[in-house]
């Protein structure tokens, strides 16, 4: 790994930690909780079920990938560790979608607008790295998906969650108007 790559990872991690710390501090000041409010009893129940769904999706996906690579193809499709990361991201995605679908994503005090801003910014932040890696042609090397595909995978995940949030907000507005 080159020095510039390691610097990129280090700066990314530091910026990420600072942003998360700022969000948590802002939420704590405003609502007294780090997630920006409390989930009610129905939401807590559904979030537990969503976590279960995400966790089992991750396990099943890991197993299927193992079967595909070790028993069927007998060659790797991705770099070591990338498949595990993608399985975790898909699990997180399933958790997020399940929560959004069952109205358990936003806390009682949360404003969906804040989430839309956060996910839009996060999705946009992935675009330069994704385009750069695609242009370099380094995403797939010798038929193996490399870690340089992570910005693309994260971008797709954040964009999907953002789309789901926007659809949910529109549906909630319609419900509010009908009520």
């Amino acid at each position: 790994m080159s020095t510039s790559y390691l610097w990129g990872v280090a700066v990314g991690v530091i910026v990420g930690v600072i942003i998360v710390a700022l969000i948590f501090t802002y939420n704590k000041k405003k609502t007294g909780t780090v997630v920006g409010g409390d989930f009610d009893e129905r939401q807590q129940l559904l979030r537990g079920k969503a976590f279960q769904a995400g966790f089992f999706t991750m396990l099943i996906l890991s197993f299927l990938y193992w079967v595909l690579v070790r028993l069927v193809l007998q060659r790797p499709l991705m770099e070591d560790g990338l498949s595990a990361l993608i399985c975790v991201l898909v699990g997180v995605g399933v958790f997020g979608f399940d929560c959004i679908l069952h109205d358990a994503f936003f806390t009682v005090q949360n404003k969906p607008k804040n989430y839309i801003i956060l996910f839009t910014a996060t999705t946009i932040s992935q675009i330069p790295a994704a385009i750069n890696n695609l242009r370099d042609g380094t995403v797939i090397q010798n038929g193996v998906l490399t870690f340089l595909a992570v910005p693309i995978v994260c971008g797709v995940l954040f964009l999907s969650i953002l789309t789901a949030i926007i659809c949910k907000v529109l549906a909630m507005r319609k419900e509010d108007a009908e009520e």
Binding site: D38, R42, Q43, D103, E179
Partner: peptide, 18 residues
């Protein structure tokens, strides 16, 4: 409204609706 009742009891509007 469902929203007003939800605010009084400290839950989301969707919970009252459910």
């Amino acid at each position: 409204s469902q929203q007003e009742l939800a605010e009084r009891v400290g839950v989301s509007r969707q919970t009252i609706s459910a």
